Simulated assay, not measured.
Amino acid sequence: MGSSIVIMGVSGCGKSSLGAAVARAEVLPLIEGDDHHSEQSRSKMSQGIALTDEDRDGWLTLLGEQLGASPNGAVLTCSALKHKYREHLRAASPGLRFVFLDLTREEAQARVSSRSAHFFSASLVDSQFAALESPVGEPGVLRVDATAPLGELQSQVSDWLKTVALPQS
């Protein structure tokens, strides 16, 4: 069984870009978490309404199923802001690792505000930081600076995947 990895962080941190780059480099399927939100959740977020834990529960279950359907490993992009969300995903995929794209509130706000073709409202950036429980110190987590160049981030993640033992499930 291969190892899967979650590229995580607040909106605007670069999950989709880094996830795609890592998936290409590691020759793994990419699971774009945003593609699996319900229409109701997308509508809420586009209206500036933060999702609740209940809104996220079915989404996380679906993402866990997607990981389980990739026995040779996959790259998942998912905010995974709270510890219990990460535990939900870990339960579905033993040995799951996380890359935390760390970004300041100001940089996240600037990035989200500049996006034109995304359903996530810039007014929700503060709620993302309010919900964020840093994964730093959890097993199988790499913290990276989200403002670093994409190529540098991808190399850092690929090197880490080769050298770090899988976390115990």
Rank of each mutant, 00 (worst) to 15 (best):
A21M: 10
S113D: 12
L89E: 01
Q47R: 15
K84M: 07
F98D: 05
T52G: 11
T61V: 15
L30E: 08
S116G: 15
S43G: 13
L103M: 06
R90I: 01
H88F: 08
L150V: 01
M45S: 10
V99D: 03
A23M: 07
A108C: 14
L18A: 04
L67Y: 12
L30Y: 09
R86Y: 12
G151A: 00
K162F: 03
S16T: 09
A69V: 09
S93G: 08
R24N: 14
A23W: 06
L30I: 13
P71V: 05
E54I: 14
S113Y: 09
L150G: 00
S155A: 15
G12F: 02
A69R: 14
T163I: 10
L81M: 03
L142W: 08
S43Q: 11
L153I: 06
D55M: 11
V75I: 14
L76Q: 04
V99L: 05
V157P: 07
T77N: 00
G73K: 02
A131T: 14
I49K: 13
S11R: 02
L153N: 01
S114R: 14
E26S: 15
Q47E: 15
A91H: 13
R90M: 03
D126C: 00
S16Y: 01
V157E: 09
L132C: 08
Q168N: 09
L18R: 01
V141R: 06
E107R: 05
L142Q: 08
Q109T: 13
L150N: 00
G95I: 08
R97M: 11
R86C: 13
F119S: 02
T77S: 01
T147P: 01
